[in-house]
Design a protein around this nucleic acid. Structure first.
Lengths: 156, 156
DNA sequence: CATATCTCAGAGAGACTGAAATAG
DNA sequence: CCTATTTCAGTCACTCTGAGATAT
């Protein structure tokens, strides 16, 4: 082992874009690891969350809510449908669309995944006290909203 | 266009892991977009930063500093060598290793990429004032350090 | 013999594109 | 005619693994 030297150089440790990128990688890894304990993926959690919060949605709208590609939404919805966590039926008002609706079993699934997400969040935020967590989340939420608005156009 | 409904559901907007993941995606995208203006990639910026901060390093050590895989380091170092931004020579003290050293041209390159990184960081942090930026960076730095320590073992 | 480094080929996961079918 | 939705096949960029050669 030749490594007592590790650790990122100051230029990176002080670079907000690099730091946020690293933090994002860890966040997604921790979330996926927890979801995997239930045989799921963070995508499934996103889709079920959106359905529970917003009620029945088309797949295209689901993709916009979760910031997932139409193509990947089709796959995730197919898997959740196979597990009985949602139903997918043609929209009588606009027959191009599928109306996707969460089921009672999907609600149970969401509660399970939500509990795992809380564990992931505990791992991620472990070094912070309650006030620091609240400030961090509020700040990052503003960053994400700002970027989402800046993209706005240019999305699938 | 059927979308005035967009925007992430509350369960995701309040999920720290989801938020940090999204912020990380934006951070990496913004950084890569800026680097692309100079025909570079964030990897090149990381490697040159590590060399400038730490002095000559082996490729393995470079990988640990930048959190890049040995395999990708080989490619990036090869590209930077091709551009004359660094030299790669066998280490006389341990002939398994390549000693990688930044050149004067590499220093100029790093200054150029550093300026672009500042622009990316300005885009990312645009909604925040100076105090918020400092608090965010200090907090995220603690998260990243904590995760790096937790991984510690288990790294390439 | 066990471990570390470098290199390359390729696998794997993830995000996205293009085109067709269907419908407004 | 043009745009939106769903679906599928396939591409692309990124990360990581495995194996071999070399050296400690």
């Amino acid at each position: 082992m030749e490594s007592t030297d590790d650790g990122p150089p100051d230029a990176l440790r002080r670079s907000p874009t690099w730091l946020m990128g690293q933090a994002g990688i860890h966040a997604q890894r921790l979330l996926n690891e927890r979801m995997a304990e239930a045989g799921a993926h963070r995508w499934h959690y996103s889709v079920l969350s959106a359905l529970a919060d917003c009620g029945p949605l088309s797949q295209a709208s689901l993709g916009r809510h979760c910031r997932l590609d139409r193509s990947d939404i089709a796959a995730v919805v197919g898997e959740l449908e196979g597990g009985g966590h949602l139903v997918r039926e043609p929209d009588p008002l606009d027959r191009r669309r599928n109306v996707v609706t969460i089921t009672a079993e999907g609600d149970r699934r969401l509660r399970r995944l939500g509990a795992l997400a809380v564990e992931a969040q505990e791992d991620l935020l472990a070094p912070l006290d309650a006030g620091e967590r609240a400030r961090l989340i509020a700040t990052v939420e503003r960053l994400v909203e700002h970027q989402a608005a800046r993209q706005g156009s240019g999305w699938a």
